[in-house]
Simulated scan of single mutants.
Amino acid sequence: MPSSYDPQYAPAGDVDAALMVIDSRLKAIHEGKTKTDPEQRLLMDQFLSSLGPGGAHDLLDGACTLIYMFMTWLRKAYEDHDKDVIEYVVPDLVATLRTMSRSVRPEAVPTMAGMVIAAGIGLSPSLWRKQFGAWTKEEMNPLEATALLLAEHINRLTGDHDYATRLVTNALSRADQD
C-alpha cells in the first residue's frame, strides 16, 4: 500500500522556476561570487514578487520536487556503489547548513534534514513537510540552501558544474515528450 506521502500524490509545482533560482545561485558560486550581487538580488526579488501567492506555493513545491529528484539520483548513484544515500548525504548537508548561520536558523536544520531523508527513502518532501503546517518565512532560505547543496553534491560527484541542472532539464524534456 503506497504511503500518503508518496510522490504520486504531490504537486510538482513550478520546477522550471525553482531550477532557475538554483542554477543562478550555482553559477554565481562558480564565478567566485560569495555574496549575492545587489542587482542580481533585486532581479530575483522582483521575479519572486511577480509570482504572487499561488506562484510562491508553486515555487515551494517546485523546490521540493528538485530535492526529490536530486535525492533520487543520489540514492541510485550511492546504491550502485553499495552505499546508503542517507549516510553519505545527510551528515554533510546538516554540517553545512549549520555553518550557514546568517541565512539558516538552527531550528530549520532538522526540518531540512527530515525533508532530505524523506526524499531519500522515496517520499515526497512537500507532503512530508505539509504534515507540520504551513511553510514559514524562516524556512525559505534553508529550503533554497538545501536544494542548492544537493545540486552541488551531484555536481561534485560528477565533476561537472552543470550536471544537476542538466539532469532536471533532461527529465523535464522527456516528460514533455511523453
Rank of each mutant, 00 (worst) to 15 (best):
G122H: 07
K27N: 09
P142H: 07
V168H: 13
A18T: 11
L150D: 05
W135L: 08
N170F: 15
E144Q: 14
R105N: 06
T34Y: 02
R98C: 04
L59R: 13
E144W: 05
M1Q: 12
L148S: 08
R75A: 01
V168A: 15
L59I: 06
R102L: 13
L51V: 13
D176M: 12
H81T: 03
R75P: 14
F70I: 07
T65R: 11
M44A: 10
W135Q: 05
W73H: 06
T72C: 06
M115D: 02
H30L: 01
T111Y: 01
G120E: 02
D58L: 08
V89D: 00
D82Q: 07
H161T: 13
R102I: 09
D160R: 04
I29L: 09
T158C: 14
G54L: 02
G159D: 15
T72Y: 07
G13L: 09
T136D: 06
G32Q: 08
K27I: 08
D6R: 07
A108E: 04
P110M: 01
V116H: 02
S103C: 12
I121E: 09
A12L: 10
F47S: 03
A108R: 02
A17P: 08
P2V: 10
K130E: 00
M115Q: 04
L59S: 06
L150R: 05
K33Y: 03
E152G: 07
Q131H: 06
V94K: 15
R25V: 01
A118D: 00
L51S: 02
F47E: 04
L43P: 05
V168Y: 15
N141Y: 04
V15Q: 12
N155E: 10
P110K: 03
D45L: 11
V168T: 13
D162A: 14
D45N: 05
A134M: 08
T111P: 00
P91V: 10
H161L: 15
L74R: 09
A108F: 00
L51H: 03
D176V: 15
I29S: 12
S4I: 11
Y9E: 03
P53F: 03
V21T: 10
K33I: 02
S49A: 08
K27L: 15
M69S: 14
A171Y: 15
L26I: 02
S101D: 11
Y88T: 13
G52P: 10
G13P: 05
L60N: 06
A56G: 04
H81C: 08
R129C: 00
G62F: 01
L26R: 11
V168G: 14
N141L: 08
S124R: 01
